[in-house]
Amino acid sequence: MTDTAALPPGPAPQAVRRPRKPHPPAAPAKRVQFDRPLTPWLFVLPQLLVVAIFFYWPSVQAVNSSFYLEDPFGFGASFVGIDNYREALSSREYRTIAAFTAGFCALVTGLALGIGLLLAVKADKVIRGASAYKTALIAVYAIAPPVTGLIGMMFFDMHIGPFKDLAALFGHDLRVGIDYDDTALALVTVAVWKQIPYNFIFFLSGLQSVPVAVREAALLDARSGWRRFRDITLPLLAPTAFFLLVINITYSLFDTFAIIDVMVKDKPANNPMTLVYKVYLDGFKGNDIGGSSAQSVILMLVVAALTIVQFRLIERRVHYG
């Protein structure tokens, strides 16, 4: 997903492919670049190898072992068909975790995008000391996820956390690590906090590329700032927003692993966790390779489905200027 998004638009990729086809004849100027059909493949080979070794090969292994029930040390594997899938999908715990993952993903993506956009719009208007504001907002992005988790854990700690005192002011006994909803609140807060700067940078650069002429013309047409934002700025930001949506969904599904790992401290107990964390728990802590593989295949299918939805349904509505 990231690769597709990161590819620069324009004629370059076509130029790479064109020499392979005899018809229609390529422009002479481009033929000079690759006069042998194998040359372009040679250039992409390292990337293809990386993808094959680190993505396709493990995926095939995972699919394969998801149909087996295996002793951890590899002494005997018995074929069990779709038992591992049936077991995962029929487990109450697995379904609870799947539901939490969906909610967590929606909340984190929504909040991180929303707050990031709001901050970007406001920072875009600031003239005095603009760079100081921007630096302050971007700085958080430099923190590594496990460290973010640690900082979050300290803030929400049941013995020394200031957020516990804050919640107590509102009459709520915040019990992160014991109460399911409280822990979920802490996870969402930390995950969103970590992701806002990233969204902020992209939205800000998106806003700054909206032509001044268009803004001024809009100013004549509509007095309401909200309407100008909705009708002019937002559509022009759509490509950025779409890119960020993809990145944020991926982030909340996968990259929050470190935050969860640090915050639930090795003992997940009744705390909320995402499907990725469950795969890790069953595979690496429980030594249940078959079951864990089946779960990761389910996750792969979910991501594939999400990608198709994103690119088929949503991207069609995005207008690239």
């Binding site: 019990r175 014991i178 399911y180 997940p268 107990a269 009744n270 728990l281 802590k285 429980g286 249940d288």
Partner: peptide, 19 residues
């Protein structure tokens, strides 16, 4: 066998008892 996972189940349920 799989006792680490059985411990995890217990931990989950104990949290639910005390909440």
């Amino acid at each position: 066998g799989f006792y680490p996972q059985i411990r995890s189940i217990m931990e989950r349920e104990f949290n639910r008892i005390f909440s």
